[in-house]
Every structure is written in C-alpha cells, then in structure tokens.
Simulated assay, not measured.
Amino acid sequence: MLYTKKALQMGAIAVGLAAFAGQSSLAESAKKEDSKPSVKTETMQVMPELTMASHFVGVPYNRSGVSVSIIKPEEFQKAGIETLTGALSQTPGVFTLDGGGTWQRGSVSNTVIRGMNKETYTLTMVDGMRISDANMSGNKLLGITNLFTVGNAEVVKGAQGAVFGSGAIGGVVAMDTPEGEGEPVTRIFAEAGSFGSFNSYVTSSGKIKKLSYFVGVGFETTENDPSIYPAIYDNRTGMNDFRQWQEAVRLGYDVNDKVKVNFTYRRLDSYFEYPTPYVVYS
C-alpha cells in the first residue's frame, strides 16, 4: 500500500513538472511571437461588372435598379425580323406596333415603354445624340429604321432612365451605328413581295490594322395595303405609299490602347403619304 501511494505521489509530481514545463515553453513561444514584426495581408476585392451605356457613362445596372434589354440585330434577322419596331415588339415591357397606328410600313411607331408614351416621356438616342427635332421625333425614327444600320440597341425601362437627362423618365431607346471588326466582309440583301414591296441593302465592314469601318446603304419601297379602310381604298390615289433611302458610315481609329477616335455619319431620306382612317361622307 505504501509503495502504491508513493508511486501515485511521484506520478503527480511528474505530471506537475510536465505541465509547468509546457506552460514555460508556451510563454516563451508567445514572447517570440510578440517580438516578431507584424505583417499585414491585403485581399483583392472584385468589383461588379460595369455596362457602358451609349450615353458614355458607366452604370452598374445591377445596383441602379434599372431594367435594360439589349437588342442584337443579328439575332432578330435570323428570325426574319428586319425592322427596329419588329425587334422592339419582342422586347419585354415594350409595346409597339410594327407599322404604327395604321398598320402600314413607314407609319409612326406608337411605342410605349411600361405604360409611358414614347413621344412624351421617353427618349431616343443615336450614337449618343438625343433625337428631339420636331420633324424627326423618336416615334417617327423608330417607325422607319431598319436593323441593318443598327449595331446594338439598349432599351432602358423605368424612371431610372432619367440619368440620361430630361424627357427620359419613362425610359430610353439608345442605338448605335455598327462598328467594323474582324476580316472585311460584305453583305447583300434583297427581297420583294406584294403591293409593290421591295427592300434591299448592302453593308461592308471590317478592321484593317488600327482602322475599323462600317458602310451601309439601303433602299425600300412599298404601296402598303390600304384595303383595311374600304373608303380610302375605293378612292385611292397613291395613298399609303412609302419609300426611303438610308445611309450609315462609321470609322474608328485606335490611337493607342486607351484612346480611340470614332466618326459616324447617318442619312435618312424617307417619304410616307399618310392616310387617315376617318372619312367624312357628305
């Protein structure tokens, strides 16, 4: 029994010495760690991707609450849609008639974005320029524009469109002239149909070293179909005829990696003999 007690006492003393030695080593390690110079580590934070809108101001759409739809002409052309109003009619939150209030090619588009009338509350922009001339309002331009002269179009929906300035509280339709890239390529398109309809255009685009270019010309004509208004159709003398000529040029030059110079030219010569659905009988 005495031997057992002594053994236990010796074991307790050994454990106590081991614990004391452990505490001493920990204290010495702590002193060494404290004596080392402190090193700060930095972490890289990835910022959200910015979308460069055609008004040349970077807007983080994922934080601004703006709803934006991007119209890519090549996707709609594959589906047989050649007009801007045809593409807009497939855009969520946008109501428009491809052919305007008279359902005739060349008529005013009557576009509405989220219930806001295009003519009064929303804005049309081309290559960063506001379209506000009384003779070429936004609705008139949208009603006659073909997609072959459009690079991409942004449709900003909602009151946040006010970042574009006055007259845009309902939204914005901002389009740009296509930019040439890659190997030079030329496209030729032509189609004909009933009512004397003919539509054609030729485009050439590409990039040669630092110079990018796009050139496009188009011609369109149609007699439309006024038979939806019998009184007009019976007394028709060229009513509803539409024809237009479009030209678009864009040149870009890469001065260096950060600077690029662009030049754009657009011309639209359009004629539409507008009928009225209301006929007064004597």
Rank of each mutant, 00 (worst) to 15 (best):
residue 109 S to C: 07
residue 232 I to V: 15
residue 73 P to C: 09
residue 91 T to N: 06
residue 205 S to F: 07
residue 204 S to H: 15
residue 219 F to R: 00
residue 97 L to Y: 05
residue 171 G to K: 02
residue 204 S to I: 12
residue 151 G to T: 10
residue 106 G to I: 00
residue 133 D to G: 10
residue 126 V to P: 01
residue 82 E to F: 09
residue 40 K to L: 06
residue 152 N to D: 12
residue 119 E to H: 07
residue 84 L to W: 07
residue 219 F to W: 05
residue 272 F to L: 00
residue 179 E to K: 14
residue 124 T to R: 07
residue 173 V to Y: 00
residue 93 G to N: 10
residue 275 P to R: 04
residue 99 G to F: 05
residue 227 S to W: 04
residue 110 N to F: 08
residue 227 S to C: 06
residue 213 Y to E: 04
residue 18 A to D: 11
residue 228 I to G: 12
residue 149 T to H: 10
residue 160 Q to D: 00
residue 53 A to Y: 12
residue 281 Y to L: 14
residue 17 L to R: 11
residue 179 E to Y: 10
residue 268 L to F: 00
residue 197 S to L: 04
residue 188 I to F: 15
residue 92 P to T: 05
residue 21 A to Y: 14
residue 96 T to K: 03
residue 160 Q to F: 04
residue 53 A to G: 15
residue 242 F to L: 02
residue 69 S to E: 06
residue 177 T to R: 08
residue 98 D to H: 08
residue 272 F to K: 00
residue 217 V to R: 03
residue 190 A to C: 06
residue 120 T to K: 12
residue 78 K to W: 08
residue 34 D to E: 14
residue 16 G to M: 10
residue 208 I to M: 08
residue 10 M to S: 12
residue 67 S to M: 06
residue 245 W to G: 00
residue 16 G to Y: 10
residue 244 Q to F: 01
residue 111 T to V: 14
residue 156 V to I: 07
residue 175 M to H: 07
residue 46 V to H: 07
residue 5 K to T: 11
residue 202 V to G: 10
residue 37 P to M: 08
residue 20 F to I: 13
residue 106 G to D: 02
residue 123 L to I: 09
residue 125 M to F: 08
residue 260 K to A: 08
residue 8 L to D: 06
residue 26 L to W: 13
residue 57 V to L: 13
residue 148 F to L: 06
residue 106 G to N: 04
residue 161 G to A: 07
residue 97 L to R: 15
residue 68 V to S: 01
residue 31 K to D: 14
residue 166 S to W: 05
residue 219 F to H: 00
residue 46 V to W: 04
residue 277 P to C: 02
residue 233 Y to H: 15
residue 281 Y to W: 13
residue 144 I to F: 02
residue 56 F to R: 15
residue 124 T to I: 13
residue 274 Y to R: 11
residue 81 I to V: 15
residue 181 E to S: 12
residue 256 N to L: 02
residue 45 Q to M: 09
residue 112 V to P: 01
residue 223 E to N: 07
residue 50 L to K: 13
residue 237 T to D: 14
residue 212 S to P: 00
residue 197 S to E: 05
residue 141 L to I: 05
residue 80 G to E: 11
residue 220 E to H: 01
residue 83 T to V: 05
residue 127 D to S: 10
residue 132 S to Y: 08
residue 273 E to D: 05
residue 172 V to I: 07
residue 186 T to S: 13
residue 208 I to Q: 05
residue 161 G to N: 04
residue 221 T to N: 01
residue 4 T to V: 12
residue 173 V to F: 07
residue 198 F to M: 03
residue 267 R to S: 09
